[in-house]
Amino acid sequence: MEARELIARRAAKELRDGQVVNLGIGIPTAVANYLPEGVELILQSENGALMFGPTPRLGAQDPDFANAGGQPITLLPGAAVFDLAASFGIIRGGFVDATILGGLEVDQEGNIANWARPIAPGKYTPGMGGAMDLLAGARRVIVTLQHSSKTGSKVLKKCTLPITGAGVVDLIVTEKAVFEVSPAGMVLIEIVDGVTVDDIRAITEADFTVSDQLCAYQV
């Protein structure tokens, strides 16, 4: 299985029926495709909707119905729409049970960096959008990212890029492993088939302990 799909399938297992969930762009968006049987979420789109549905087919699109990526969407029965003030009230107010976000880097202190790649001195792209508000307000923060980039581990002792949120990450899901993060540190809880704890140590810059309930990656 391709890494991104594996990560999305694993992250989907974290979600519970009836939860209010905001999914970020990229791997997190795909999580909605792999929800366990019987799990129906109230998906929030920060541009102003609860309970959005699948992409419309050509002919069923509506010019005023789109998601936070500017893509056409449908709404499910029971949906609600609102402006950005209400939408971010939902986010900051603690009404979002979980958010799944992509990351450029995460670290063992629960910091995440996903808004700022330098394009010139002091200038960063793409900007934080709603991510900082989500990190400040969502009850549970799940970060999905590939374990390593071309230049090395993305699971670090300390993020090198400007962070999006400080000490906010609860769970890290990569294609190799799953870590829980708390003020006490990072704990390895799952590893994929054919990989040892030593293998994970070799590709992970962060310090972590190994759970005494360490188990196989759940997909």
């Binding site: 102003g48 959005f52 509506d62 119905f65 729409v81």
Partner: peptide, 12 residues
């Protein structure tokens, strides 16, 4: 009057 999910930043 707004329509659909298109109010977004307009009211504020």
């Amino acid at each position: 009057q707004y329509r659909g999910v298109s109010a977004n930043s307009n009211p504020v």
